[in-house]
Write a protein that binds this DNA or RNA. Structure first.
Length: 264
DNA sequence: ACATTGACCTGAGAGC
DNA sequence: TGCTCTCAGGTCAATG
């Protein structure tokens, strides 16, 4: 689930539910997901404090802690959040639970433990330390910047889009979607894209991410004209008479319509 | 500089 | 029913 639109949705969820309430205590059961912090450090930093605001960069969510610093969450492949009453049953695989004074709790659920819970001094410092590229929806990435960033870049366009140090936030699913809509083959060498293709890809990158955010990144609510609801070998392409097929690119399974997206 | 592979984790679904 | 195999929206380290 958690690529940029999902994480953006989680951030809005936290902002709508969990800010400005006193944190009574927390439970952490997340060995190997904590990096650079112990459960005790997390407790000390959070207990008695309140969450003040949220920020997102790429697939990382930052939640500002009133005292100082930020709680950092990365959702890996399966992570999500659930806010509810204390008496509600906790979802299985809740690895982090923040208990508020108002009788509600915010749970972080990771079926697989691929993900991250930590503390950051500030989003800016974290982004710098991790070497993350600009967020894919940063207003700064105008078409000219996008072209300049890709200029001379070797390797497939799909792996460039998924490279978090290049642009942060795009993963396997949404890279396929924007390439499908831009009618570009995912395996195409990034250096060989012409001006038209670069312009289409830039526009579709923004369109796909913004549309997905508008629909709360809920696959059910995404347009049927998208590739996403048809990500299966042998499905009919929603745009032409072609047949969707899968391909291995950069170690991930890419889906495409070879008819619309010629290898050129 | 790039791609590839395996590791990290856990569960779902397919096929037998 | 139960077993085995493969695969999954992510990232990291090691290798070619």
């Amino acid at each position: 689930m958690p690529e940029l639109p999902d994480v953006e949705t989680f951030g809005r969820y936290v902002a709508a539910t969990s800010l400005h309430q006193r944190i009574e205590c927390i439970d952490v059961d997340a060995p190997r997901m904590l990096k650079g912090v112990s459960p005790e450090m997390l407790e000390r930093r959070l207990e008695g404090q309140r969450f003040r605001s949220t920020r997102r960069h790429g697939k990382y969510l930052f939640i500002e802690i009133d005292g100082n610093g930020w709680l950092l969450l990365h959702f890996g492949m399966t992570g999500y959040l659930d806010y509810g009453k204390e008496q509600n049953a906790l979802p299985t695989h809740s690895r982090l639970v923040v208990h508020f004074a108002n009788g509600y709790r915010l749970a972080g659920i990771w079926q697989r433990r691929l993900g991250r819970i930590g503390l950051a001094q500030s989003p800016a410092k974290f982004i710098e330390d991790e070497g993350l590229g600009p967020d894919a929806l940063e207003p700064g990435i105008a078409l000219e910047d996008f072209k300049a960033m890709l200029h001379g870049r070797r390797g497939s366009i799909k792996s460039a889009l998924m490279d978090q140090s290049f642009i942060a936030g795009i993963g396997n699913i949404y890279s396929d979607e924007m390439l499908f809509q831009a009618e570009i083959h995912p395996g195409k060498d990034a250096r060989t894209l012409d001006d038209d293709q670069l312009a289409r890809l830039h526009a579709k990158m923004l369109h796909v991410l913004n549309t997905a955010i508008d629909r709360q990144a809920d696959p059910e609510r995404l347009p049927k004209s998208w590739l996403l609801p048809h990500r299966e070998d042998g499905e009919k392409c929603p745009r032409c008479n072609g047949t969707v097929k899968s391909l291995r690119i950069s170690g991930r399974t890419a889906y495409l319509c070879p008819t619309c997206q010629s290898a050129g």
